[in-house]
């Protein structure tokens, strides 16, 4: 069980969502989502497959447009931003994709350089190499520098994906199922990495998962998405202290003997 991060600032909301709705054709995915993310907090979003967890963070990072509702990220109203302002905001948000989304025509080093050459223009090659060394060391994969993504395992790709999002020092990290499909030991390493990132870079994070071990290890607060709304929230134990069959089922199937 995680010790709640003492540095959380509950007066500083980095993300504030009110009444968010999103539908695809006739299919309502998110019905009425209210959510706050506080500075320095690790927020875990639980929910079954297909409940719209990925859709939610894609809306936060501007990859999808919400149909309705307010969305405030780092003090900016995301619905009313020019493309240029949106890009400036995106630099402060790190998005770690469900399937890593590494650029597979580039080596690991080129993957990490890709955002750097475009956004840290004042850096020379020497500075860039140093920053790349630092993040690779942070995810424990210094030796993979010159490999192609196709030569890495799923867990290694995930970690490189996280390294690539860390490289611009985002204030907010969005992790989409960081531990899905990994063995338990690699899961624990990823969980450690997420906590390490929170401590070292003082980021606020949303972690999407259906892995309760991960939720317990990294979450300062847990929310659960049911029927397009956040029905339960609180600490890990508070969320599961309920008679709701669906929530109990979620718990039981995760810790089946």
């Amino acid at each position: 069980m995680k010790k709640i991060n003492p540095n959380i600032n509950r007066d500083d909301k980095v993300i504030a969502i009110r009444g968010l709705q999103k539908a695809f054709d006739d299919f309502e995915v998110l019905k009425c989502v209210d959510l706050d993310l506080y500075k320095g907090e690790n927020l875990v979003v639980l929910g079954r497959s297909g409940t719209g967890k990925s859709v939610l963070i894609k809306i936060i990072s501007g990859l999808l447009q919400a149909d309705e509702g307010e969305l405030n990220v780092l003090g900016e109203d995301v619905n009313n931003l020019t493309p240029r302002q949106m890009d400036a905001l995106r630099l402060k948000i790190g998005f770690s994709f469900q399937n890593s989304a590494l650029y597979d025509s580039m080596t690991v080093k080129e993957n990490l350089e890709f955002p750097l050459v475009r956004h840290s223009k004042q850096m020379n090659q020497h500075d860039r190499d140093r920053v790349i060394d630092i993040v690779l060391e942070a995810v424990g994969l210094s030796q993979a520098m010159h490999q192609m993504p196709s030569e890495l395992s799923g867990g290694q790709r995930k970690r490189i994906g996280i390294a690539r999002t860390l490289i611009l020092r985002p204030e907010i990290m969005l992790y989409d199922e960081p531990t899905a499909g990994l063995d338990p030991i690699t899961c624990i390493e990823i969980n450690k990495l997420i906590n390490e990132v929170q401590r070292r870079f003082n980021t606020s994070s949303i972690i999407i998962t259906h892995d309760l071990t991960c939720a317990r290890a990294v979450g300062d607060r847990v929310v659960m998405l049911l029927d397009g709304e956040f029905k339960r929230q609180g600490t890990f134990d508070e969320v599961f202290a309920t008679e709701d069959e669906r929530v109990k089922a979620f718990y039981n199937y995760n810790f089946i003997d």
Binding site: G62, A101, F114, H119, T165
Partner: peptide, 20 residues
């Protein structure tokens, strides 16, 4: 095929969220 697979594996989205 190349852009298609980049779309499918969300590499295009990854570029977009890194403000490229």
């Amino acid at each position: 095929a190349e852009l298609g697979s980049m779309r499918v594996t969300e590499q295009i989205d990854a570029m977009e969220v890194s403000a490229t």
